[in-house]
């Protein structure tokens, strides 16, 4: 009888220990790590986010008059109206073309560029961050700007905020530049959201990769 009791006790102890181990998933640190992997947590961006929700964003770098044959106007449009995937379009149009398509390969073989590169949730979060930067602090001043930047963020009800400034290292123009890079990377390379995208193989970092190279004279 006593032996039977011990057997039952052992079984209960094992089950309890196992469930304790499983419940470790609910530990805040593990949850945070898991959510980060699953794309459920905050994006880790420092700074202020707008409390408003935006369904569309335009980031534009207007170029000079065409007669100067300078850089063409660049526009990236992000729409989060689709519940699953953000729609990202870029002008000039060739930004939307994959290298494989350019080289004349078929779309079947040219699957490196993933058009479903970003979930709408991620895109909305990024736009809220940009909106937070645009609504925060004094507007940077500029004179005789050669490289303007214009951002328009559209809310669900159709109202919008729009600002124009000169690209600079401070304030929202810098955040707009980061957002443009983020959305372009999402469109052309895909971001690592598990189950969401086909991410192309990332090449080994080259030793010649020198982020933010020191200026040379």
């Amino acid at each position: 009888m006593n032996g039977m009791r011990f057997k039952v006790l052992c079984a209960i102890t094992s089950v309890l220990a196992l469930s304790a181990c499983m419940s470790a998933r609910n530990h805040p640190a593990l949850d945070a790590a898991q959510n980060a992997v699953n794309g459920k947590s905050d994006s880790g961006l420092p700074g202020v986010r707008s409390s408003e929700a935006f369904t569309e964003a335009y980031i534009e770098y207007p170029g000079p008059h065409a007669k100067w044959a300078g850089p063409a106007s660049f526009v990236i449009h992000i729409s989060t109206k689709n519940p699953h995937w953000a729609l990202i379009n870029v002008a000039p149009a060739w930004f939307n073309t994959s290298e494989e398509e350019q080289a004349g390969l078929t779309s079947e073989t040219a699957n490196k560029v993933n058009t479903k590169g970003l979930s709408s949730d991620y895109a909305r979060e990024r736009i809220r961050y940009l909106a937070g930067a645009m609504q925060q602090g004094p507007e940077p001043t500029f004179k005789g700007c050669l490289y303007p930047v214009r951002v328009r963020l559209i809310r669900e009800d159709g109202t919008f905020i729009e600002k124009t400034n000169c690209r600079s290292e401070v304030g929202w123009p810098k955040v707009a530049s980061e957002a443009a890079e983020y959305f372009l990377t999402a469109k052309l390379r895909g971001l690592s959201e598990p189950g969401a995208v086909v991410v192309p193989p990332i090449p080994e970092a080259s030793p010649s990769l020198l982020p933010g190279g020191e200026p040379e004279q």
Binding site: Y61, P71, F74, F95, L146, Y147, R167, E169, K174, A176, S177, E178, A180, E181, Y182, L184, T185, L188, L209, L210, P211, G212, G213, E214, P215, E216, Q217
Partner: peptide, 22 residues
Amino acid sequence: LKIQRPPIVQDPDLSWRGIGIF
């Protein structure tokens, strides 16, 4: 006048765009 090589973290959009800026 100096020149800064890519990638430029101060102006991240330039990593995709093929222009230079003053």
